[in-house]
Design a protein around this nucleic acid. Sequence first.
DNA 1: GTCTATACACTGATAGAC
DNA 2: GTCTATCAGTGTATAGAC
Lengths: 214, 214
Amino acid sequence: MPAVPRTISKKIIRQENEKLILEAAEKVFAEAGFGGATMQLIADVAGLPKANLHYYFPTKEALYRQVVESIFHDWLDAAAYFDDAEGPIDGLGAYIDAKMEISRSHPAGSKVWASEIMHRAPVIQDYLETTLRDWTEDRVAVIQTWIDRGLMDPVDPHHLLYMVWATTQHYADFGHQIETLNNGQPFDDDQWKRAKDTVKSIILRGINARARRV
Amino acid sequence: MPAVPRTISKKIIRQENEKLILEAAEKVFAEAGFGGATMQLIADVAGLPKANLHYYFPTKEALYRQVVESIFHDWLDAAAYFDDAEGPIDGLGAYIDAKMEISRSHPAGSKVWASEIMHRAPVIQDYLETTLRDWTEDRVAVIQTWIDRGLMDPVDPHHLLYMVWATTQHYADFGHQIETLNNGQPFDDDQWKRAKDTVKSIILRGINARARRV
DNA sequence: GTCTATACACTGATAGAC
DNA sequence: GTCTATCAGTGTATAGAC
């Protein structure tokens, strides 16, 4: 009865090829934008014939949507640290650390996201209006409790979140500019640590974060 | 002798048409990216036949380069406030105000710039390595004098600049996301003022900016 | 300087043999 | 599930009349 093993091996082939294609697509979409990316180039980077891409993903747009959705969920997961924290020093500090790590390890994803937003979110507008909106209001509420408990100054929570997003994602989205200003060299470990510490320090000081009510 | 007036009026026609085309191109490049933008759409927005675009700008890339260069010079001019300031409260404060104003009044330009950088600056890499690098080192030196004079804490000047760029440009580049989280409404005057004040307050507090040495 | 018509290249997508 | 060959559509750019 070869049906079962054949089914399983086909599933594995499918999983592996989809992963290959999605990784290649993320890279190519980040470097060329949606319009500049070609299915041919994605196929070349993935090491597959172009026709196979259309076998796994019906259209270029469907492939792009998968890429953006995957990135979106990475972002959301990065805030797990936020929720169980005692206050802003732990919570925001860990969140900034996590987001800086993603900017370092996953810059292509950040760029695809930025590009999608800049073009007025033609593909994931529905996510913005549901998942992101809910997620944001939840975190705003957490920040408000920190303010109410006297653990930071009364800063507008939305703008504080925007500042964290902007600053951390900048190291991915504008990485090329930063690299150019760093004499053409990517950051080494020490420079990443310095970046992370500086960002955390300015923001936490800027909201006057403290461990207990004064 | 009709040569002179004819030459002048041709110059005026050229200036006006080039301006029309450049404004339309900035809008279209911002909304669709370089690859997604079409000469046809730019022509429609400018209200001119497509062939006329090729009369004034030889290629799509030449038109794009003009758009990016114009934005780049707007950015550089925004730092005039920086130079003659007494210290970080005046200098950085005015610079942040100016950059927030540009994000508000000129969001398309900011997006085209962001897109160009995210794609590794295929068109204006030479500017990054000369003009931007020099400009940045000059401002880093100014910040360092503020630190040396005890007017702010010893914060890495490069990362401080990156934070200002990231935070202010975020309101243009990610304006659509912010608008979605603002119940689909663009910021009104009060909300822009609140954004500006929050950004300035957190950053100036974050570096412990002060009017005189303590 | 303007504009219609068109050449030429390229891209996304599919058909159909293996 | 793979891959070659190909189609239909679109885009940049230009030629040439006005």
